[in-house]
């Protein structure tokens, strides 16, 4: 028995025909390449833009958030395991073609770009847009998101989205198994792996422990070029500019200053080793 969301409250989830395939929605975000940003930072070349709030990143490529790509990988593994499913991938932003076509090439059946019409969105507004689209497009049995985006690192959109959909959220998955309407998730915790089980519909966030996601084949890339994302506007989802006005405002962004207080030990390898151990012992560190 499949259940689908068709209204505003959990009570509005309705039963659908048994033979209808499971619907998985994967939420993806385009981010600045975190390795490129990090390399700039390591080289001391990272700069904040004139607005004092955003990175000056003309030279940094944009790509799919790595954790979201792993969310897509989890969806594909569910399909690999023999579960009949349709995978819809949704992103927010006017120009998300590259990211969405990548997911199409990987095997998404449906790709959707929600255009926020230039409005600056906070996490709450992002969750509102995603929730409105999911509700309006036939609901979902399983929503997959990356554990966080590698730009703001907040990791709160998935949980806000789950709340708006009235779904339970399971965080930091390394493995997800579907069995009928039941979901088994292996979570990464600080004490080791934990396995939890519950009924769908549900939202799961995916952690990097999932491992390296697959690459699309050349042939599927070619085919995906013909697939255009379905364009959705905030207005068509019934959300006004006022609905999306941020309650959390980014005021400024700065580069951290690391004091730097390193004493370089000089000499041959045996000499520096002796010196270091002696210093650590003298300071009571070891």
């Amino acid at each position: 028995m499949r259940t689908r969301l068709s209204g505003a409250t959990p009570a509005a989830w309705i039963s659908k025909a048994k033979n209808e395939p499971m619907r998985i929605v994967v939420c993806v975000k385009e981010v600045l390449d975190p390795n490129a940003v990090n390399n700039l930072a390591l080289a001391g070349k990272l700069r904040i833009g004139a607005d004092g709030r955003t990175l000056d990143v003309a030279s940094v490529p944009r790509l799919i958030n790595g954790y979201d790509e792993q969310g897509m990988e989890v969806a594909l593994r569910i399909r690999d395991a023999g579960v009949e499913c349709r995978i819809a991938v949704v992103s927010i932003g006017g120009d998300q073609q590259a990211v969405l076509r990548h997911c199409a090439a990987l095997g998404a059946d449906e790709i959707v770009a929600i255009d926020p019409a230039g409005a600056e969105l906070d996490c709450e507004a992002v969750a509102k847009l995603l929730a409105a689209w999911i509700k309006g497009s036939g609901g979902a049995d399983l929503v997959l998101c990356g554990r966080q985006a590698s730009d703001d690192d907040q990791g709160v959109v998935p949980v806000l989205l789950a709340e708006k959909l009235g779904l339970p959220a399971v965080l930091f998955a390394r493995a997800v198994e579907v069995s009928g309407t039941s979901l088994r998730v292996t979570r990464v915790t600080s004490d080791g792996d934990e396995v939890v089980q519950g009924a769908m519909p549900a939202l799961v966030t995916v952690s990097n422990e999932v491992g390296v996601p697959r690459f699309p084949t050349a042939k599927s890339k070619m085919a995906a070029r013909k697939m255009a994302p379905v364009a959705v506007t905030a207005a068509s989802l019934g959300l006004s500019a006022g609905d999306l006005a941020p309650t959390v405002a980014l005021v400024k962004q700065q580069l951290p200053v690391v004091a730097g207080n390193c004493e370089f030990l000089q000499g041959s390898a045996p000499e520096v080793a002796q010196t270091l151990i002696a210093r650590l012992r003298a300071d009571g560190v070891i």
Binding site: N38, L46, D151, V248, A249, L250, K252, Q254, P256
Partner: peptide, 15 residues
């Protein structure tokens, strides 16, 4: 809050 894995620090105004 830290952002970009700690490469930047972002300041937010909250309600």
């Amino acid at each position: 809050a830290t952002a970009y894995g700690g490469d930047t620090h972002a300041t937010y105004r909250m309600p």
